[in-house]
């Protein structure tokens, strides 16, 4: 569905994407995970055939976006990071008008609009103005709009950024249904839980490059331990900095990460590690034992957290 090789994007002197290789297959759900500024959105805009490629090769549905942009855009769906809904039109009109851009007959677009409103649970808002919708409803409407042409490939750029937790779960539920229906999904996110929930396979991007690739579970197995013990100490415990504390426990874990507010101990058995920390006479103000996540993978690979 998407084939990129040595793909680059530069703006003036700045290189946003610095040569990436990606291969997305039909029916899979693929993610770009990375912090803001990693080059995810620039990549998505090139894949959506709205932003010219600066270097390398890119094929979407076997077509070249430089020459077949309209053909590609006719067959894909795009849910941009910022809602581009017409706020003065009704919810339903937004779908109908957009469907017409794809050359679909009016009657078909109207039927499709009603189906999609049902799908994103906005049927009772069909005649409301977009201005009156909540953030989560707007997002669902944008997703519905991106489906109006029955796309073979659906691109979602940060689909739940800026939504409250409840609204995110509703969006995830809808996207999960699309995934089960066999729609090829490609999404960018800087939320590791979103990537874990929705993608079969993902690449981790940082500073315009791909730093790792695999399924969420494989990436965790490869780059992190099974569990993580998080230790929070009071303000400068016994006058000691986190670095000093880290040295005192570093032999208890495979790896120790020092964050501004806590220490992360990577270990196979978190509870056991916490017990050993206490045996050493250290008394963290709070401890938490959890499974490793993609956040830990990212931290391992880049030395930074996903959300600053």
């Amino acid at each position: 569905m998407i084939l990129a090789s040595g793909l680059r994007k530069s703006f003036g002197g700045f290189e946003a994407v610095r040569g990436i290789d990606v291969d997305v297959r039909r029916g899979e759900s693929f993610g770009f995970l990375g912090p803001n500024g990693a080059g995810k959105s620039s990549t998505m805009r090139m894949v959506a055939a709205v932003s010219p490629v600066s270097g390398g090769v890119l094929r979407i549905l076997g077509l070249d976006p430089a020459t077949d942009g309209p053909e590609i855009r006719a067959r894909i769906g795009v849910c941009p990071q910022e809602d581009t809904l017409d706020t003065e039109l009704t919810v339903r009109d937004n779908l109908v008008v957009y469907g017409r851009y794809f050359g679909l007959p009016r009657r078909e677009v109207r039927e499709r609009a009603d189906e999609l409103l049902e799908f994103v649970q906005l049927t009772d808002k069909a005649n409301a103005k977009v201005d009156d919708l909540s953030g989560g409803m707007k997002r669902r409407l944008t997703i519905a709009r991106s489906l109006v042409n029955r796309p073979e490939l659906l691109l979602l750029d940060e689909p739940t950024t800026g939504l409250d937790p409840q609204a995110r779960h509703v969006v995830w539920d809808r996207l999960f249904r699309l995934k089960q229906a066999g729609v090829t999904l490609v999404l960018t996110t800087h939320y590791m839980d979103e990537a874990e929930q929705l993608t079969d396979r993902l690449v981790v991007m940082d500073k315009g490059l791909i730093v790792a690739e695999g399924s969420p579970l494989d990436l965790i197995a490869e780059h992190s331990t099974r569990e993580v013990a998080e230790l929070r100490f009071g303000v400068a415990e016994e006058g000691e900095s986190h670095e000093v504390l880290a040295r005192k426990v570093e032999d208890l874990a495979e790896r120790v990460e020092v964050l501004p507010d806590r220490l992360l101990l990577y270990t196979a058995d978190g509870e056991e590690t916490v017990a050993k920390v206490h045996e050493r006479g250290l008394t963290p103000a709070a401890t938490l034992v959890r499974r490793s996540t993609l956040e830990d993978v990212f931290l391992r690979l880049t030395g930074r957290t996903l959300v600053d």
Binding site: A48, R73, P80, T84, L85, D86, Y98, N149
Partner: peptide
Amino acid sequence: WQKTYFSMTASPLS
């Protein structure tokens, strides 16, 4: 403000 052109050109239209 509304970025309507961006939604138009995300479709097959140029």
